[in-house]
Design a binder for these strands. Sequence first.
DNA 1: GCACTCTTGACACAAATCGAAACAACCATG
DNA 2: CATGGTTGTTTCGATTTGTGTCAAGAGTGC
Lengths: 237, 237
Amino acid sequence: MLHTALVLDDDTESATRVADCLRDVGFALVDPVAGSDVAEAVKQDGVNICIVGHRAMSRDGYEIVRDLRDRSPAGIVMLNDSSEEIDVVLALEMGADDYMVKPVRPREFCARIRTILRRTVVTPPNVDGARPVPDGFLRRVDDLEICGVLRLVSVAGRELSLTDSEFDVLMVLAAQTNRVLSREQIIASVKGEGHAITDRLVDGIISRLRRKLFAGETGFKRIRTVHGRGYMLVEGV
Amino acid sequence: MLHTALVLDDDTESATRVADCLRDVGFALVDPVAGSDVAEAVKQDGVNICIVGHRAMSRDGYEIVRDLRDRSPAGIVMLNDSSEEIDVVLALEMGADDYMVKPVRPREFCARIRTILRRTVVTPPNVDGARPVPDGFLRRVDDLEICGVLRLVSVAGRELSLTDSEFDVLMVLAAQTNRVLSREQIIASVKGEGHAITDRLVDGIISRLRRKLFAGETGFKRIRTVHGRGYMLVEGV
DNA sequence: GCACTCTTGACACAAATCGAAACAACCATG
DNA sequence: CATGGTTGTTTCGATTTGTGTCAAGAGTGC
């Protein structure tokens, strides 16, 4: 249910616009690390979808798309100012799953993203028996370890049992540490969009999480409340 | 690889234009039979991709798209004169894989078709994304061995006898380990679609499976329940 | 600082979901 | 037609989810 996205675009205006769209509909965003191997990072972080501008990380966007496609099954969307046929065709042939002309229309953008995800199989089919062990989807936040695939959590080595909704919320927070997430965003990430649920449910789950995770700990609150805005999982105290 | 396409559009000018494109790049075209059940025909003829106009076969194109998506894994492209955001979003939410505004540009059109086909796995009636199961195949999930042909199962070398329905459900779970499958998906995979059976039957079978397979095991649950969503067979603890 | 308002934490409780077992219907077999 | 095995439904207790409430806390204007 929780999807992770990566936005790469030197056009910062478009990048923030797109990032906001994605966050609103419940995506966790990964920060692009300049100079790093993008495809490798995408694999590492279990990114489901990449948005690439026609120039990104001071490189040619098309090149990045090809690179990503060669080494990752993630969905790829190319953004560009140009609506020329040649540019569209080139992007798609490099391996993009869709091509949109800026400025994107938010609702269409989200709908197209969802369409791609519908077709994206996270683990590529692998017929000959043994599939690779899911080492990915392991998130570490200080001494908190979360395995997204097996849905296991441990704090300081001590393993503990969370309910499914507790786990889902923790996952969302852990995907975006040191960043405030609104209750709406958290619910959207966990339930999908347009679910009729009270905001306050999040409070309840957070309350239970705090007790289970950081029961004995004194002083610092690692899940911090930001009054009027939401919650944040603090990393690197 | 020969692909088969079906063009449905009351706008004959667009239809022929599109059909020509497809033929040029090597598609076999299926003739639409007026009044027939489109989704059924698509299945029958092994169609890989459907092009649907906003009016087709004297019906509303959006309706056709939804119908197709519900009952076929084929790629679907919607064509329309309108470039309104609302129309795009609607089409995609009905299940279209792409939406293009007429008149289509041939090279872009073909590139987009190819992009869809890249993502379209033609897995026969099965949970979507499930890996194709070769005959005579032996699936291994940790110390769990399943022979699909002889319908035998063993855990840690110890062989045990399952009933047919237990075996079927185990097969479905084993085809997609570490991924949550809904009760609907499980029932659909085992019985075929549209079978009038209680969701809860799955619970019963899972319960019996757990007892037979992992009777003595302590601690970790290898068939995991995800509250409100379904079940998951965990691999690689 | 003080009064006021809105937000949050924590708990209690209703509703939904799940696990396991009991039970009825079905089916093949002898 | 009795038997044994399997399938699918029902039931009940246990767990989890989601709502309501109220006291405590945080922000704001004075």
